[in-house]
Simulated scan of single mutants.
Amino acid sequence: MSRSKSLQYYILARLLLAPLMLWTITTVVFLLLRATPGDPVDAVLGGRAPDSVKQEYRERLGLLDPLWLQYLRYLGSLLRLDLGSSITTQGEAVWDTIQQHFPATVELAVCSMAIALVVGISVGVLSASRPNSFLDVGGRLFGIITYALPLFWVGMLMQLIFAVQLGWFPLGTRFPTSLPTPDGPTGLYTIDSLWSGNLTQFFTALYYLFLPSLTLGLLLSGIFERIVRVNLKQTLRADYVEAARARGIPERRVVLAHALKNALIPVITILGLTFASLLGGAILTEVTFSWPGLANRLYEAISLRDYPTVQGILVFFAAIVVLASIAIDILNAYIDPRIRY
């Protein structure tokens, strides 16, 4: 079978498996929410509400129905792309919640990923190009430390140093209340401010975005540093690299133009997995920095046992991770001709 045919079958198989993966995730989320302690009615009405009022509210929400009936109703809603309505914010549709808060999460995720790639690849190249040197040891320590440090602790430390003590950056918001927020079609403050040509809003949005994205990006950069360092070291020992050196090509050009290009192929592969880590890290980052994104809204919904909101946001995140994973696999297959399926 030719490579193009096998690749087509692989893509088709991944696309067919995607609904099965989403169904598995939604089922696990549904069951875990109902297995955890806590009652959403108590979270909404409080512990002192009369039992008759609580029972009436549970019946209105369908929580008194058998579990299998609740599950079938939930799956039916998902098939209609209906994520339901919140039970703690006066029936706000979950889709409206996603539309309102997701742009802040996207902005944080994109900036954090950019910082992670730039820092991780740069440190990995410096470390691999000077083996057994001080830079190599420092690069390895950087990768281990950034991978091992707890994100919430680093976030609080960064706020304490740069926001509280030094006062260099703002604390606990996305945009100052004294200025009008950027208005545009995307909901991304940096993009919308450029769209309207307001540079003041653009630099203000970057200023408020810098500290949380730097924190998350630095801790994710260790993943890319370790991958680039290991693969670049192996690539620098390859025959074609030695041949380039024998032709008198400067070492800097050998590393950047010949070896690094092939060493970055595994980075593309790991992007899909890192994207899932990025969403998980976004929850801790948004909660720590009080960033008004979708992950922070998910944390609030979990605290209030808001079943529809938690289920809807997690299904939305799961769909993004599954689609991103498929896209990265396809891209990697086209970039690296050695891959066979």
Rank of each mutant, 00 (worst) to 15 (best):
M1E: 05
S2V: 03
S4A: 12
S6H: 09
L7T: 11
A13G: 06
A13T: 06
L16P: 00
A18F: 07
L20I: 12
L22E: 02
L22Q: 04
T24P: 02
L32H: 11
A35I: 03
P37N: 05
D39S: 10
V44F: 14
D51L: 14
S52L: 00
K54C: 10
R60T: 12
G62C: 00
L63D: 04
L64I: 08
P66H: 06
P66Q: 02
L67Y: 08
L69K: 11
L72G: 00
Y74P: 00
L78S: 00
L79A: 14
S86C: 01
T88W: 09
A93Y: 12
T97K: 12
Q99H: 12
P103A: 02
V106C: 01
L108I: 05
V110F: 15
S112K: 01
S112G: 01
A114Q: 11
A116T: 05
L117P: 01
L117V: 01
V118R: 06
G124T: 04
S129Y: 09
R130E: 14
P131I: 07
N132W: 14
L135A: 13
V137R: 15
G143W: 12
I144R: 09
T146A: 14
T146I: 07
Y147T: 12
A163E: 13
V164F: 15
G167A: 10
G172P: 11
G172K: 10
T173E: 15
P176Y: 15
S178Q: 15
P182D: 15
P182N: 13
G184K: 14
T190M: 13
I191R: 15
L194E: 04
W195I: 11
G197E: 04
Q201A: 14
T204S: 10
Y207I: 02
Y208K: 07
L209T: 06
F210D: 07
T215N: 11
S221R: 05
F224M: 06
F224G: 05
I227Y: 13
V228H: 14
R229Y: 07
N231R: 07
N231T: 12
K233F: 15
K233P: 02
Q234C: 12
T235I: 13
E242N: 15
A244V: 03
A244C: 09
A246P: 00
A246G: 11
E251Q: 11
R252D: 06
V255G: 03
L256A: 01
L260Q: 05
L264I: 08
V267K: 10
T269S: 10
I270L: 06
I270N: 14
F275Y: 07
A276M: 01
A276S: 13
S277Y: 15
L279E: 04
L284H: 11
L284T: 11
F289G: 09
S290N: 04
W291K: 07
W291N: 03
G293T: 01
L294F: 09
Y299V: 08
I302F: 08
R305I: 00
P308S: 08
L314V: 06
L314H: 02
F316W: 04
F317Q: 00
A318C: 00
A318N: 04
L323F: 15
S325M: 03
S325K: 04
I330P: 02
N332A: 14
P337S: 08
R338K: 12
R338V: 05
